[in-house]
């Protein structure tokens, strides 16, 4: 059992005892969280990044990372054809090798969910939609909820929502909380991932607060970024979020997943996140149900590194499918 930060469990209990979800109550809880030592988080993340993963462990990590991918396309130029190709790749990442696991999900804009649903059917890859006025989240709640319902009606299994960063940064925690709650209700059985967009949150303390807010609101996953803002996912941010889900699980017994997204392009990066998850949250998080990696070009690098492990020869992109 990892050491429990002082006050976290007490604060959570206090919150759950307090039915009012006022700004004041939330502020009391969130600002009562133990402060994040930024230099310490950076040093810890940098230290864990030096861990060397070789041979069988590397092969295991590569295949696990493949199984954790939310294969993503979020471009204005997305077409049904491109989505169909993406789905084919999600189901069978390496056409030449059936031993490669399929990815966890495809992640798309809501209007393309129907196409993905048709392509994937019930073959085990989830269809995730970014909803709630992705990526900025600047729309009224009713528009956001309509966005979510539309995606669900089209067959989405998972919803990636964005929080209202403007409201969060101006201290309107109640509003952010209510939005997450409302989307949670609209989702029903669907998996809800809450995007914190940590690149806009300024401090690691804010990241921890937003993570708690999202988890209290009912998130199944907390997700680092939309991929549209720089910096996207960074190791210290992931470290803070992984600590938050661990503390939350200790305080409430509910395991919330983490999704890192944005700028993760190499197998080496992916493995570093796995090390971070293992060391920070624990082994239970090393599963697609609790850790996801949002990416597109990463998949090919994982496939190439896997082929390198199996054949011994360095691979080239000419022999792997595009997108």
């Amino acid at each position: 059992m990892p050491p429990q930060p002082l006050g976290t469990a007490r604060a959570a209990r206090a919150f759950f005892g307090d039915l009012a979800t006022s700004d004041t109550a939330l502020r009391q809880l969130l600002h009562g969280l133990p402060g994040v030592d930024q230099a310490g988080a950076e040093a810890r993340a940098a230290f864990l990044a030096t861990r060397s993963v070789k041979k069988d462990s590397k092969l295991f990590a590569l295949e696990l990372a493949i199984a954790m991918i939310d294969l993503t396309t979020l471009e204005g130029a997305d077409t049904p054809g491109k989505v169909a190709a993406l789905c084919a790749k999600a189901l069978r990442p390496d056409p030449a090798d059936g031993d490669v696991p399929h990815v966890a999900a495809v992640c798309l804009y809501p209007d393309l969910v129907a196409v993905a649903r048709r392509e994937i059917g019930d073959k085990g890859v989830a269809v995730a939609a970014v909803a709630t006025a992705f990526p900025s989240g600047r729309a009224t709640l009713s528009v956001k909820l309509a966005d979510v319902r539309q995606a669900l009606d089209a067959g989405a299994d998972e919803i990636d929502m964005v929080i209202d960063r403007g409201a969060f940064l101006s201290g309107c925690y109640g509003q952010v909380y209510e939005e997450v709650r409302a989307v949670r209700e609209a989702c029903g059985e669907a998996v809800l991932k809450v995007i914190l967009e940590t690149g806009e949150l300024a401090t690691l303390d804010n990241v921890a607060r937003a993570a708690w807010l999202a988890m209290l609101g009912g998130a199944d996953f907390i997700k680092t970024s939309t991929g549209k803002v720089s910096p996207a996912s960074t190791a210290p941010v992931a470290l803070v979020m992984l600590s938050a889900v661990r503390d939350f699980a200790d305080a409430t017994g509910r395991r919330v997943g983490v999704k890192v997204a944005g700028g993760i392009r190499t197998a080496k990066d992916a493995i570093r996140y796995l090390v971070l998850a293992y060391e920070t949250a624990g082994e239970e998080w090393l599963h697609p149900s609790a850790f996801r990696i949002g990416a597109s070009s990463l998949l090919n690098d994982l496939l190439m590194q896997r082929a390198k492990q199996l054949s011994g020869a360095y691979q080239g992109p000419d022999y792997f499918t595009v997108d």
Partner: peptide, 9 residues
């Protein structure tokens, strides 16, 4: 041998 086997050469 590494160079000769490299798939991107």
């Amino acid at each position: 041998p590494v160079l000769a086997a490299h798939m991107d050469v």
